[in-house]
Write a protein that binds this DNA or RNA. Sequence first.
RNA 1: UGCCCGAUAGUAUAAAGGUAGUACAACGGUUUUUGGUACCGUUUGUCUAGGUUCGAAUCCUGGUCGGGCAACCA
Length: 553
Amino acid sequence: MSEERSLNFIEEIIENDLKSGKYKTLITRFPPEPNGYLHIGHAKAICLNFGLTKKYGGYTNLRFDDTNPVTEKTEYVDSQQADIKWLGFQWENELYTSDYFDTLYNYAVKLVENGLAYVDESSADEIARLKGTPTEPGTDSPHRSRSIAENLDIFTRMKNGEFADGAYTLRAKIDMSSPNMLMRDPIVYRIKHADHHRTGSTWCIYPMYDFAHGQSDSIEEITHSICTLEYVSHRELYDWFIAQLNIFPSHQYEFARLNLTYTVMSKRKLLQLVNEGLVSGWNDPRMPTISGLRRRGYTPESIREFCERIGIAKRENLIELSLLEFCVREDLNKTSTRVMAVLDPIKMVITNYPEGRSEVLIGENNPEAEDKGGSREIPFSKELWIEREDFMEVPAKKWFRLAPGATVRLKHAYIVKCEDFIKDESGIVTEIHCTYYPESKSGEDTSGINVKGTIHWVSKAHAKVAEVRLYDRLFTSESPDSEEGDFKDYLNPNSMEVIKEAYIEPYLADATLDTRYQFIRKGYFTLDTDSTPEHLVFNRTVSLKDAWSKGNK
RNA sequence: UGCCCGAUAGUAUAAAGGUAGUACAACGGUUUUUGGUACCGUUUGUCUAGGUUCGAAUCCUGGUCGGGCAACCA
């Protein structure tokens, strides 16, 4: 079962680098910007970066890329750390790009001194205009040939807070006619009189991504700086700064980001859903965020397995949600406690069961576990709740469940035969009458009766009430990003169904957060964070595969 | 109309010039006190046109298609 998985292209590069002696240890980093919550796409990057050093030795740093104080918050730093830990990874060093602001500033001064950077008072519009277009070369800024002394003087005064936001920028002096737009004298420092979540008001100039990321990698001696495809064209600049500064040569490698069907993956769009109240927050169980998946009941193991299975490559991809669901079912099937809950109840009366009598039955907790997960007591009595969809007045072909005259097994209990049913004025079935076979008790069945179907139930007198929330895909489109118009037009109006009164077996009254349950025949469920002992709230993580409903749509 | 990246079943991902494989999905079956799980089986693929070679998914050339690049965002 443990056959060698083939290497992805990054592992090949690393194995070659290690073999050739280019590096003796591997150092990677995960560099989120603390401006939002981490999502399943980040999980792919986390599993990659941390997984690589776990596999090859070395270590991984967590570095918050906090160069834009206006969008970054400590709340995000905290949530991101919690999510990474929950996924099961531990960083070697907790670092911040802002730790390097002094060094970065000195690097900028060095560039100016070497005639490789200049201050420019051109407006944003002017800079954009002179930049040219992808098909036309740009034009040198009129301020490009200022003296080194004057550049140094103004840059110092920028740092000292003498100018308003936007009055000046510091630009690298590279090549305004480069076919790579990023090499056309990119801005490396801009003035922002904004409080930074870590450095407060110490700085009023902040480095741009391109002037911070590669150098930060270099300072930490990151050997393999792994990022997503949209940074491919940044690599030339990344290498340029490292070469001009003559610092440790980190190298950047790019892989394709994760796209998942029926959701969106950009922090900007997820933030929009949160801000516009279209979801209950970053951790809404329908969100593709790590915190949302966690609340929904996904396990770290299942997410890691998913990231392993999707692979790492350079081509654009759109992974089917069904793979994620497969991974969580696979994990939960092995570990979750089986219980019975009736979500859409209809009353069943066992007419030949003595009035007022009840008995305690024993149910194994997990048939997949070696010890069957232990067992629990389940009360049984004359009146039960069963699932409305388990009865058909006129049975379909190959119907194994309840119908007039049909027999089924009540899970962990007796075989019953449907003798009659009652309808109200509007034709809705309100009650089902059955007789039971006393000698068919689960585990000691001597009845000799064979049944095709087994259904779940809860004793009416002993049932507890719980709220149950069922989730479906957040969007109706496989790829809301690529649809016409606003992505929000494709939100699934039925992405959440709330069942206010579901009946659960008494065992579940003691349910705890983070325990995963399988409601037999219905799916995997876990307690929501909204739950209280007085008002239990369960989330459905994912339904069970259902060959019946699939074939009968 | 410039530069860069990419193209293998429905979706992903392998095959480093030598049998196109695996997973998910779909479909069919066996087992089953969950129409779950497990197990077995089936269908479906190298973008295109040339070239190199005994032999090409793989190397070369042209084309096509998809994606990225013109934020004082990361």
